[in-house]
């Protein structure tokens, strides 16, 4: 991935550095500077205005709402909803309170879920990328096939999964009970303890093609002759993987894991589509938990406070990750 960055950077540097015959026209360039500097600002203005409207203003409003007691009853004059200071945050963070303990349980569950989904998706994606990095007949077909879960709209896919996991008429139970005879009683998947595992399975199915796609692109930037040289030196397949492949895709890996981690931690669509408005206790992730408080219980202040807490937690986690894991400076892998 980042191999393309260096030439691009160099090209950009060359383009900005005055060179050769053009350096003689420096005084002319200085005269034109005011006009040249105004135009770019004008050109980014629409984007900046829309960015402000769509992202920044709602975000600031959301932070403000977190400090108010905005509920369905005060929504008519929402700007004058009673200001409650840090009360919503205190309630959300009190591990002894009903809400705080639920929030912490949900955070813990979401962390385990994220670790499992990202770990499994990465492993599958990497395995598939490595096996499809060598040329063989049908490789193109397999590559396309592997991308199907990622290309399908998540709404369609998750609803189909929900049908498949239905206890009485679902395909999964038909396979397990009637066709394979592995279990006698049809297990429940969408309620009770199993709901968590259904969530993990559907999320991994959805996410691994992304890891596959990114890692495949990274693998293709590794020069073939490095593997050839290692093979001549007698390095085993595993050694080549651990000593060449992994270090060479380190940057891509770091980014893929960060992005997948953030997406998964914030996952909302899949649990919402599988379980509806309220997820079963075993599978209640943090985003649906916040949604429940905001749009099922209509306590927008509390929901916003929990969103702000989640945002802060994710910013800290990402900052630590970026500092510890992402390579410093410009690597050439």
């Amino acid at each position: 991935m980042s191999t393309t960055e260096e030439p691009r950077h160099r090209a950009a540097q060359e383009a900005t550095e005055p060179a050769g015959p053009e350096s003689g026209a420096e005084s002319g360039a200085r005269k034109r500077r005011p006009r040249r500097s105004f135009l770019p600002y004008g050109m980014i203005l629409p984007a900046a205005a829309l960015e402000l409207l769509i992202h920044i203003v709602p975000m600031i409003l959301g932070i403000y709402i977190a400090f108010t007691s905005l509920t369905q009853l005060t929504i008519r004059n929402w700007t004058s909803a009673p200001f409650v200071g840090l009360e919503n945050f205190v309630q959300g963070l009190d591990p002894g309170g009903a809400l705080g303990s639920d929030l912490f349980q949900s955070l813990f569950r979401t962390t385990v879920y994220t670790a499992l989904v990202v770990g499994l998706s990465w492993a599958l994606g990497m395995a598939a990328a490595v096996s499809l990095n060598t040329r063989f007949r049908g490789r193109g077909v397999l590559r396309t096939l592997f991308l199907v879960p990622y290309a399908l709209p998540v709404y369609v896919a998750a609803i189909i999964w929900a049908f498949m996991f239905n206890q009485r008429d679902g395909m999964i139970n038909r396979l397990l009970v009637q066709d394979l005879g592995l279990v006698d009683d049809r297990p429940f998947w969408l309620i009770g303890e199993n709901a968590f595992w259904v969530l993990v399975i559907v999320s991994v199915w959805r996410l691994w093609p992304f890891a596959f796609l990114m890692l495949l692109a990274a693998l293709q930037s590794i020069p073939e002759d490095m593997y050839e040289a290692a093979a001549i030196d007698g390095a085993s397949t595993w050694k080549r993987f651990t000593r060449i492949t992994l270090p060479m895709v380190r940057s891509a890996n770091a980014v893929v894991l960060l992005v997948m981690g953030l997406w998964t931690f914030n996952e909302f669509n899949i649990p919402f589509l599988l379980f509806g408005d309220t997820s079963p206790d075993s599978a209640r992730l943090i985003s649906p938990f916040i949604y429940e408080h905001s749009f099922v219980n209509w306590n927008f202040g509390l929901g916003a406070a929990m969103s702000v807490l989640l945002l802060i937690a994710l910013i800290i986690a990402s900052a630590v990750y970026v500092r510890l894991v992402l390579p410093k400076g410009r690597g050439n892998d």
Binding site: R35, F38, L39, G42, M43, L45, P46, A49, L50, L53
Partner: peptide, 14 residues
């Protein structure tokens, strides 16, 4: 493109 036009267009769009 005259800078003024760009700014006016952007403002209108905004």
């Amino acid at each position: 493109i005259p800078a003024k036009a760009v700014v006016s267009a952007s403002t209108a769009l905004g």
